[in-house]
């Protein structure tokens, strides 16, 4: 919320006429509520994960590690992040740059491209299930073109299964990156681009030396936000593949709901939390850098 000097000045002036206690009263309810629903469960969850019937124990973590699904789930989650996010950024950047050229119907395109922003990962999984399932639309098209059908989602074809999840996530979650990039692009004055053009820079040179550097803050924020969210992916894979492609959050749900073991569920949840917090720490660092910069 950094503003130029004069605005800060009025803001301070406005404050001075009020009592100093009022803002604290206004934020108090939210502080109490968030503490109750974030801090309390967090501490409770740590207790759950480390406490057994006989006192403190690491047994739940041992069980988590011994579970045959754990390492595949961890591997799949990591792989998904590594493959999905670069694709997603390339895709979103392409879409944003296309829109920046102001094609006809750009308003309509933008609407269509951001629709998945409001679609849940469960819904996205079900939507793509209609495409990828054995007797689904993709195989229908293939067969009418004379090809054999293919079991995309079978556990015998882990590669195509993984690709299906990546495509569904690409479809669903790229719009968030797109919106952040479009907002970022709008914040870049056209002058710079035009100046570069006047001095003879080609489109790619302008992209590389003018647009992308200025888009960096937006890209960084989007990157960290998406990383945290990608860690939480599970319903897409659940809807498309059942437990054929386990993911970490899906395993938590399995342990909790079907295996009725909240302690191991809490242990996995803490794992996810640790990774998320690392990403969040990066996020906050980034915020500080931005706050510190004069712009």
């Amino acid at each position: 919320m950094l503003e130029a000097g004069p605005i800060e000045y009025t803001l301070q002036g406005f404050v001075a006429m009020k009592t100093a206690r009022r803002p604290l009263l206004l934020i108090a309810p939210s502080l109490v509520f968030l503490t109750a629903l974030f801090a309390w469960p967090l501490i409770f969850g740590i207790g759950q994960a480390f406490t057994g019937t006989g006192g403190p124990t690491a047994a739940h973590f041992q069980r988590m590690l011994d579970d045959p699904y754990f390492w595949p789930a961890a591997r799949n989650t990591a792989l998904l992040i590594v493959v999905l996010i670069p694709l997603q950024f390339a895709f979103a950047l392409t879409m944003a740059l296309l829109l920046r050229e102001r094609p006809r119907f750009s308003g309509f395109y933008f609407y269509l491209w951001v629709v998945p922003l409001a679609i849940s990962d469960l819904a996205a999984g079900l939507v793509w299930l209609a495409v990828f399932t054995d007797r689904g639309y993709l195989n229908s098209v293939l067969s009418s073109l004379g090809f054999d059908g293919y079991s995309f989602l079978s556990h015998e074809n882990p590669a195509s299964m993984f690709i299906a999840v990546v495509i569904a996530e690409l479809w669903r979650a790229t719009s968030l990156v797109l919106v952040i990039i479009v907002a970022g692009l709008q914040g870049i004055p056209k002058d710079y681009d035009e100046a570069a053009e006047v001095f003879g820079a080609s489109y790619w040179q302008r992209l590389r030396h003018v647009i992308l550097p200025q888009l960096r803050p937006s890209l960084q924020v989007a990157l960290i936000l998406r990383t945290i969210l990608a860690l939480e992916t599970f319903a897409v894979a659940q809807a498309l593949t059942g437990r054929n492609m386990p993911l970490l959050v899906g395993e938590t749900y399995q342990w909790y709901d079907f295996l009725q073991n909240p302690s191991v569920a809490a242990a996995i949840a803490l794992m996810i939390l640790t990774v998320s917090l690392l990403a969040a720490a990066g996020y906050l660092r980034l915020m500080r850098d931005q706050t510190g910069s004069p712009r």
Partner: peptide
């Protein structure tokens, strides 16, 4: 504001399991 941003980074699953117990 940092506190708000931090809470946004907490995965839902971390809260849900202990909350169910609470």
């Amino acid at each position: 504001q940092l506190f708000l941003l931090l809470t946004r980074a907490l995965p839902i699953v971390v809260l849900s399991v202990p909350l169910a117990r609470i």
